[in-house]
Simulated scan of single mutants.
Amino acid sequence: MRIDKLHTIDSTNSYLKRISKEEDAQEDIVVWALEQTAGRGQMGTTWSAESGKNLTFSVFRKVKRITISEQFYALMAASLAVKDVLSKLLIKNVRVKWPNDILTDNDKICGILIESVIKRGKLDAMILGVGLNVNQTEWKDTPRATSIKSRTGIHFELEEILSMLLKQFHHYVDLLLKGQFETIKNDYEQHLFKKDKPATFIASDGTQFVGIIKGVSETGKLILLQEDEVVNEYDLKEIQLLY
């Protein structure tokens, strides 16, 4: 695996998309930046992190054995890998806030962004972006943010955490390649934030409603039990969990 360590870049995901296309990359590539000037989150949001104190990196990997309809399993696998590493570091109450945020209690400690590379109508590769709060302890205009250091009081070497994450990612990639999708999905659902508890959501038209998270569909939609025992599925553009 090739690892490119950079001081400053706009976005590790954007950078990887450019170089993987220019180089027609066939091997795994990791791009790790100490600072991102335009870090990206889900749905066009930004990811802000203090320079040199957190892990911001992206991984390029060929995934020809996974179809477009199965790509959400990669996001579930990545979420579980981060959860596993945080648990090993003694972070308590780690949960996945659908679809791609990692929380400890009610505070966000990590965000994940996966982008697909489609060629000739088929899934050719995926770019996984991770923003993990490691040693930062203060934030401006970012409510409910936390870090590994904030939770443990321990200052960690970023490279050590990166190595742990990459090792765990490989474990889940092996599960994906073996077709163990149901195992991944069950584990992901077991760690969903607010699962089986009443929660308030806001729809795209601004209306609020209460639902109970029951799981996710194979394509990544959130399955909610609502009034009158009606079960509905929603994608990311349709609802937002309020907490």
Rank of each mutant, 00 (worst) to 15 (best):
W98P: 10
S116N: 13
T137I: 08
Q36P: 06
M126Q: 09
I112M: 05
E70F: 11
T37D: 01
R61F: 08
I112K: 05
A49R: 11
K88P: 09
E70G: 12
S11C: 14
W47D: 05
Y15S: 07
C110S: 10
W139I: 12
K97C: 06
V31W: 00
Q136V: 07
L86P: 04
G39W: 04
D10C: 15
R95A: 15
V63Y: 13
I102P: 03
L132K: 00
K53T: 02
G129R: 06
R18A: 10
A33P: 00
Q71D: 03
K119G: 07
K140D: 13
I127Q: 07
W98F: 13
D105R: 02
A78C: 14
L34N: 08
K92T: 06
F60Y: 02
S51P: 14
D84A: 12
L55M: 10
W139Y: 13
R18W: 12
T46I: 14
L113R: 11
V59L: 08
V134N: 02
R18E: 13
A38W: 05
Q71R: 09
K53L: 07
T46L: 09
T67W: 11
Y15E: 11
S87M: 14
E27F: 08
Y73I: 05
R151W: 09
R95T: 14
G41H: 03
I114E: 06
E22G: 01
V31A: 06
K88Q: 15
E50G: 02
W47I: 06
R65D: 15
E70R: 12
G111S: 09
L80K: 00
N13R: 09
A74W: 12
L16M: 02
L89A: 00
D10R: 15
D107I: 10
S58K: 02
C110G: 08
V85T: 05
D124F: 11
A38K: 03
K17C: 01
S79T: 05
V117G: 04
V96L: 14
V63T: 15
T67G: 14
Q36Y: 07
R95Q: 12
T12H: 01
D28L: 10
W47S: 01
L16K: 01
Q26I: 08
N133A: 01
R65I: 15
E70S: 13
V85C: 08
L55R: 09
L113Q: 10
T56I: 12
L103C: 14
R144I: 05
T37V: 04
L113A: 12
T45C: 12
V30K: 01
W47Y: 01
R95W: 14
Q36A: 04
W32H: 10
L132A: 01
N13C: 07
V30R: 01
D107V: 09
S87V: 15
A125M: 02
V94Y: 03
